[in-house]
Amino acid sequence: MASTPLSSDSKHGGHSHVQPVWLLLGNMLWLMVLLIITWWASTFDFGNVVINNVVAMLIATIKAVFVIWIFMGVMHASKLAKIWVVAGFGFLFLMFGILGDYATRQFEPVSGWETNVPNGGASSFPRQWPPQKKPEQVGENFRPRG
């Protein structure tokens, strides 16, 4: 059978790497430990809710990395597979840019929107600059709770 390389990037031949049992077993046990840490972290208060959430997601991400790197064999996979993994998650983060809208959007009622509009309300654009700080109690959406 011809052994000519068919394309420039087909020569890496790392796929058939057989993973040792100890690595797979160790990885599984480590993931179980991480799972218990996940549960523990959810009951522990690290200071405030943002940090708590970040910690939870961090642990989940670590778990994901171990699954991808070892179980899915990306450790030994071709460069292309690695690029694909990074690109996939990269674009996912890009999509999370959608949240940027909500972070910078002013929910109604927007200060300056409903009252005191110059030229008799002809324009709906808020005329105060910089816009007034968001009030604590804005509509249904941001109801602070105990």
């Binding site: 000519t4 390389p5 068919l6 394309s7 990037d9 087909s10 292309l80």
Partner: peptide, 11 residues
């Protein structure tokens, strides 16, 4: 495109 190019068909 990645895998089926003929020999010599570089990017």
């Amino acid at each position: 495109t990645h895998k089926m190019r003929a020999p010599g068909m570089t990017w």
